Amino acid sequence: KRLSEREFDPDIHCGVIDLDTKKPCTRSLTCKTHSLTQRRAVQGRRKRFDVLLAEHKNKTR
């Protein structure tokens, strides 16, 4: 699936709103397109961004 077609989940996706499409970014939490500050500011996550990021990195090892 293309990035734009993915169902957005704030707990596994970057989530920064794309200015062109007005939709949240569906790249992983480790997205290189958006800064850490931008990704931390995303609302609606179950846990703090840093906790989710650490969990994500542990899963992908």
Rank of each mutant, 00 (worst) to 15 (best):
D20Q: 09
V42E: 02
I17M: 15
T37L: 12
L52E: 03
D50L: 03
N58I: 03
D20H: 10
L52C: 05
K32V: 10
N58A: 14
E7P: 10
K22L: 11
A41H: 08
K59E: 15
G15T: 01
E55L: 04
K23N: 07
E5W: 07
R48D: 15
D50K: 01
F8H: 04
D9P: 02
R6H: 07
F49R: 02
C31Y: 00
L29S: 01
K22D: 07
K47Q: 14
H56M: 08
L3G: 12
L3C: 06
G44Q: 03
S35K: 05
R27P: 00
R39E: 01
D18M: 08
C31Q: 02
D20E: 12
L19S: 13
S4A: 07
C14Q: 00
E7K: 13
I17H: 10
V42N: 01
C25R: 00
A41M: 13
T30K: 10
R46T: 12
V42Y: 02
H34N: 01
L53D: 03
K47E: 14
K57S: 08
H34W: 00
D9G: 03
G15S: 06
K23D: 04
F8P: 03
R46D: 05
L36F: 05
R40D: 04
L52W: 03
K23G: 10
D50V: 03
K23Q: 11
R45K: 01
V16H: 03
R39D: 02
V51G: 05
P24M: 06
R40F: 05
I12R: 14
P10D: 01
V42M: 01
E55V: 04
H13E: 04
K57Y: 05
T21A: 07
R40V: 08
T60W: 08
K57Q: 13
D20K: 06
K1N: 09
L53Q: 01
R61F: 12
Q38E: 13
K22Q: 07
D50S: 06
T37N: 04
C14G: 00
I17Q: 14
D9W: 04
P10A: 08
K32C: 12
R45N: 03
E7W: 07
T33V: 11
L29P: 02
T33A: 13
E55T: 05
F8G: 03
N58K: 13
T30R: 08
T30G: 09
L3A: 10
T37G: 11
I12H: 15
K32H: 11
T26V: 11
F8Q: 02
R46V: 09
G15H: 03
L36G: 03
D20C: 07
K22C: 10
R2Q: 15
L19I: 09
S35T: 09
D20N: 06
C31R: 00
V51Y: 06
L53A: 04
D20W: 06
Q43T: 14
K23T: 10
T60G: 15
D9Y: 07
P10V: 09
V51H: 11
A54E: 14
L3V: 11
V16E: 01
R40N: 05
S4T: 13
I12S: 13
V42R: 01
T26R: 10
S4H: 12
R48T: 15
C31I: 00
F49M: 05
D9F: 06
Q43W: 05
P10E: 03
R45T: 03
T60R: 04
R6W: 11
R2G: 14
E55R: 04
S35N: 06
N58P: 10
L36I: 15
L36P: 05
D11H: 06
Q38L: 11
K47D: 14
A54H: 14
K57L: 15
A54Y: 08
L36D: 12
N58S: 15
K57C: 09
R61D: 14
S4R: 04
C14T: 00
T33Q: 12
V51E: 15
R61L: 15
T26Q: 13
L53F: 06
F49G: 03
T60D: 14
R48L: 14
D50G: 03
K57H: 15
L53E: 05
I12F: 13
K57N: 10
A41E: 13
S28R: 09
H56N: 09
I12W: 10
A54P: 03
P10I: 07
C31K: 00
S35H: 06
D50P: 02
R48N: 15
D18V: 07
C25G: 01
K22W: 07
R46Q: 12
H13M: 13
P24D: 01
H13F: 05
R2L: 12
A41R: 12
E55K: 04
L36T: 07
L3K: 06
L29Y: 02
L52K: 03
T30I: 12
D11I: 04
L36C: 05
K47M: 11
K22A: 12
L3D: 15
A41N: 04
V16A: 04
L29A: 01
H34R: 00
C25H: 01
H13A: 04
R61I: 12
R46Y: 10
S28A: 11
V16D: 00
T37H: 14
D11G: 04
G15Q: 00
V16W: 03
F49V: 06
G15N: 02
G44M: 03
S4F: 06
R45W: 01
E55Q: 06
K23F: 12
T21I: 07
L29C: 02
P24R: 08
V16M: 01
I17L: 15
A54W: 09
H56P: 03
R48A: 15
T30C: 10
R39I: 03
H56D: 10
A41D: 13
E7S: 14
T37R: 10
H56V: 11
P10N: 04
R27N: 13
Q38P: 01
R45H: 02
T33E: 14
R46E: 12
E7C: 09
D9N: 15
H13R: 02
R39N: 01
P24A: 07
V16C: 07
D18H: 09
V51W: 11
F8T: 03
E7Y: 10
C25T: 01
R39L: 04
E5K: 07
I17K: 10
K47L: 11
V16F: 02
C31H: 02
D50E: 09
V42C: 02
E55Y: 11
A41F: 05
C14V: 00
S28F: 13
K47H: 08
P10H: 02
F8M: 14
T21C: 07
Q38Y: 02
R46A: 11
E5D: 10
S28L: 13
P10M: 06
S4L: 06
H56G: 08
K47T: 08
T33L: 10
L3M: 15
T33I: 12
C25A: 01
R61C: 04
E55C: 04
G15K: 00
L29H: 02
C25L: 00
L3S: 11
H13I: 04
P10K: 07
S4K: 12
H13L: 02
P24F: 08
V16Y: 03
R46K: 10
R40Y: 04
V16P: 00
L19D: 08
L29Q: 01
V51R: 10
A54S: 13
K32D: 15
S35A: 05
L3F: 08
H56Y: 10
R27V: 07
T21L: 09
L36Q: 05
G15M: 06
K22F: 06
D9L: 06
R39V: 02
C31V: 00
R61S: 15
V42P: 01
T30D: 12
L19M: 12
I17N: 07
S35E: 06
C31M: 00
S4G: 12
L19W: 08
V16T: 06
I17A: 08
N58Q: 15
Q43V: 12
T30F: 08
F8I: 06
V51M: 12
I12A: 13
P24T: 05
S4E: 15
R48Y: 05
R48G: 15
T33F: 06
I17W: 10
K23Y: 04
F8S: 03
T33R: 09
R48V: 15
R2H: 13
R27G: 14
H13P: 00
C31E: 00
G44F: 03
P10S: 11
E5V: 12
E5T: 14
P24H: 09
G15E: 00
T33D: 15
K47G: 08
K32T: 07
P10Q: 05
A41V: 07
D11V: 03
T37C: 13
L19G: 13
L3Y: 12
G44V: 03
E5C: 09
R6Q: 12
A54C: 09
C25Q: 00
G15P: 00
R48K: 14
D50R: 01
R61N: 11
T21V: 10
G15R: 01
